[in-house]
Simulated assay, not measured.
Amino acid sequence: MSRRLTLPERYAFGPSLASLQAPNGDPCVRVSAGDLWMAARTPAGPGTLHLALSGGEIEATAYGPGEAWLTERADAIAGLRDDVTGFPALAKAHPLVHRLARTFAGLRMPATGLVFHRVLRAILEQKVTGVEAFRAYRKICRKFGEPAPGPVDLLLPPDPAAIAASPYWVFHPLGVEQRRTQSLLRAAREAGRIERCAGPAEATRRLTALPGIGPWTAAEVVRVAYGDPDAVSVGDYHVPNTVAWALAGEARGTDERMLELLEPFRGHRGRVCDLLAHGGIGAPRFGPRMPIRSFAGY
């Protein structure tokens, strides 16, 4: 199945969809400057979505039992349901945000409608370096994934039922310690209820009710699964410092200070954090970096 999508002016395909792909070789998603291939476990069954940029349009083509669901949702996945109408006025509250909003006016936030795949990534990214998290993600996808429908070599994201049925020791050689594994197993057991949430508020409530999932993990999930532009990753290692440095010239910031500085942008606070990241804004670094470990060797 396929459909053509008309694009807003200055739409930035690759940067808008980059968050859908885990760095360093995602087995389930591939994003380039003009193409997205994404394997998914949809409510209608497994499927693969291809978005191809062509002039001022995107051609969306889907494969497999989930093709109708993916085709219907293709505009949301591309970020074309992202409503930025009121943001330019809010951005004027700070000169840097105003400049970044104009520079990256083509950015849109995707909304996949697929929750558990993002929960998997977010839990694996808890309290570890990106290198550790993405390495474990690739190993889990390769162990639990299945070939996706369509003409490209992708794996379907792990079936939450297969995750839930696995004992802890299966994940240790994949680089995930007991704490994160237990959080992942709990989320997998509740995946059906989580996937049926009507919006980001309900999803946040259900997710944070699970032991081992806090505001940071929930925000990382709803920002992509629902395209929530206000989701702020409270508890992040870097973001409070980045926001404090960018908006107030303070080298270090707490979660409370971050939220205070972002308050003028309420409704788009997560979007402001994304703009700072796209703009390469970062606070000065002091002290050693977090070490890269391998739990599989413990």
Rank of each mutant, 00 (worst) to 15 (best):
Y63H: 15
G64A: 07
P65A: 04
P65H: 12
G66H: 05
A68F: 14
A68W: 10
L70F: 05
E72G: 03
E72I: 03
D75K: 08
I77S: 12
A78W: 09
G79A: 05
G79M: 10
L80T: 08
R81Q: 15
R81P: 07
D82K: 09
G86T: 15
F87S: 02
A89T: 03
A91Y: 01
K92L: 15
H94E: 12
H98Y: 09
L100Q: 09
A101C: 13
G106R: 12
F116C: 02
H117N: 12
V119W: 07
L120R: 11
A122S: 15
L124R: 06
E125W: 01
E125D: 13
T129L: 13
G130T: 07
E132R: 10
Y137L: 14
Y137K: 08
K139E: 08
K139N: 07
I140M: 02
R142V: 05
K143Q: 08
G145Y: 10
E146P: 11
A148T: 01
A148N: 08
A148W: 08
P151L: 12
V152T: 14
L154S: 10
L154N: 08
L155M: 03
D159W: 10
D159P: 01
P160Y: 11
P160K: 08
A164M: 11
A164S: 05
F171P: 02
F171T: 01
H172D: 00
P173H: 00
L174H: 10
G175K: 08
G175A: 00
G175T: 03
Q178M: 01
Q178P: 00
R186I: 04
A187Y: 11
A187S: 03
R189P: 04
E190R: 15
A191T: 05
R193H: 06
E195H: 13
E195R: 03
R196H: 13
A198M: 04
G199L: 06
